[in-house]
Amino acid sequence: MSMQASDETLIARIAAGDRVAMEAFYGRHHVRVFRFVVRLVARRDVAEDVLSEAFLEVWRLAGRFEGRSSATTWLMAIARNKALTEMRRRPMEPLDEARAETIPDLGDDPEQALQTKGRDRILRHCLSALSPEHREIIDLVYYHEKSVREVSEIVGIPENTVKTRMFYARKHLNALVTSAGLDLGER
């Protein structure tokens, strides 16, 4: 039976220049970080660039990781900063094919869309239609299962703001879901 090294152990080994540890850390977290970044930048190709930049930052700064937050919280904060830099660099970029892939088109008839495209696609559309701040917090809480404090550390806002932002993000998401004809009570 093999014991899996903790993230913090891997970070310590990465700080010493251990590429095997870097491979393990990347393998463990790259998919979740990628999905978080895709939600922010809304383009798969850009998200892949941000992903590799974020992990490169981990490689370079591992020696400065102090363990005050978890390694994944630290990683997510790095990825978020990289994503925001990328978003600032191309703020008004027109919608292109790569971006369109991440935002399903519901067409003019939500009822038909419901029948033909399924619940996941509708919810993806509704999530994509939220503001970046609301998309981000829904994702951090529901998918990444981050605590109030961890979201506060990743996003850089007070804990009370985390709670109210999540409250309003949910409110907007439910309004969008309802207008798209999807009842979350159905299964």
Binding site: R39, E48, L56, D120, R124, L127, Y142, Y143, L173, L184
Partner: peptide, 24 residues
């Protein structure tokens, strides 16, 4: 909401090997 949102995020898939190749 949690179940649906998590499933929708799962549907975003995985990055290509390009990201890993570039990193290493």
């Amino acid at each position: 909401e949690l179940a649906e949102a998590a499933a929708a995020t799962e549907a975003l898939g995985s990055p290509s090997t390009r990201a890993k190749d570039r990193l290493f």
